[in-house]
Design a protein around this nucleic acid. Structure first.
Lengths: 216, 216
DNA sequence: GATCTCTCTATACCAAAGTATAGGTCTCGT
DNA sequence: ACGAGACCTATACTTTGGTATAGAGAGATC
């Protein structure tokens, strides 16, 4: 338990900056407040590094040799990475800051910045990432349950949550009403839904998570 | 039909800037592309002005006598106003731009800016506002339907969408199962729900719109 | 006070949902 | 060829949901 940031377990801050002195300064600052840190000299080495399985936040320099911080930020989703990003830069301009925020950064600080501003941003980032990790874990569990349905059960599930009667569902699928009832029982069991409203919510959530998966 | 911006009807852009020459320039620019415009010299006069009932977007100067653009932006929600904001400023800095974006602005332009950048931002803003207006209209219709339920029907509705059986609902509320069935029929009619899944979705949407209202 | 409206309740009935058992068909691997 | 498992279907039954009709009681309106 860490009362400082309100998070319940360990967290980590990744620092990606080509300037060794900045890396050292950030490491010192964060270590001093008990925050675990890992530093990287460029985006490429961060990309390939194994990631810690805990809430995390990314401090990113804008100007770097190789992949720039801004470009890396844009490609993060495509790389399967999802960390709140705090930008730091020594030579930024307004358009750059605005662009970074448009891309979803949670903070954009210019050097020199106040330590407290950075620490505040990190706390916000860690809290956001913890919430997202929680959501993702629940979403993945839901997806596993959905994938445990066979093709026929999935068909019935899709139709049932639109409000169709078993008889109508059976007619559409060209199976007997009994079959629909049997599949329905399996659906409720496999999806761990205690009631039809529960199933409706699970299916709607699935639609939000991965519409394609729901059709498969 | 307006093929230029993909919107289906009339739209308006509000300009709030204390500099008369800027107001004139923006009026000219937007009028030239067929965009309706209304200009204001300060935030206060915009606040009290009657608003047009169509998709709208707000171009806001940061530095103004009286209420600054930034402060006005922060207070908009409290004033019951909801317009996408495009900031323009002649004397901004990075922190200001970042702050504006954190507060939800859709663009932050520094003078001189390219006309096309402004027009692009306006189109995005109008599209966002049109979608929000649509959502709000649907939400208000849903709220009207909910308010048409009497107290007993609301109680039943809240319990039914949790998955409780009529018998259980009746036990909790201390009424007969028949009463629950009658209320349920009224609920489906008044809420215009064709099935239980439909009702579940309407209730969940209400919870998102106004949790307090749902408990009343 | 008579009437009207709203709400709750009961009776009666039907349709739909859910469950259990059993048998049939098909595929797959041995 | 044979057994195992997955899936569909039928029969039979119970519970639940939904509707129609009608009566009782409370409260408002004239």
């Amino acid at each position: 338990m860490d009362a400082r940031n309100g998070l319940t377990g360990e967290t980590i801050v990744y620092v990606v900056d080509d300037d060794a002195s900045i890396r050292q300064a950030l490491d010192d600052l964060l270590s001093a407040v008990g925050q675990k840190v890992r530093c990287f000299a460029d985006a490429e080495s961060f990309i390939v590094a194994p990631k810690d399985n805990c809430p995390a936040c990314l401090i990113l320099d804008i100007r770097m040799p190789g992949l720039s911080g801004m470009d890396f930020h844009r490609r993060m989703a495509g790389l399967g990475l999802d960390y709140p990003v705090v930008f730091i830069t020594g030579h930024g301009d307004i358009a750059m800051g605005v662009e970074a925020m448009k891309n979803g950064a949670i903070e954009f600080l210019t050097k020199p910045f106040r330590d407290l501003d950075l620490l505040d941003a990190i706390q916000r980032g860690l809290a956001i990432n913890e919430a997202r990790r929680q959501e993702r874990a629940e979403g993945e569990a839901l997806l596993r349950r959905w994938r445990s349905l066979n093709a026929g059960e999935k068909q019935v599930a899709r139709l049932v949550v639109t409000g169709l009667l078993n008889k109508q569902t059976a007619g559409i699928l060209g199976v007997s009403e009994i079959t629909v009832k049997v599949r329905r029982a399996q659906i409720m069991r496999k999806m761990e839904a205690g009631s039809l409203p529960d199933l409706v919510r699970e299916m709607d959530r699935l639609r939000g998570l991965s519409p394609a998966e729901l059709d498969s």
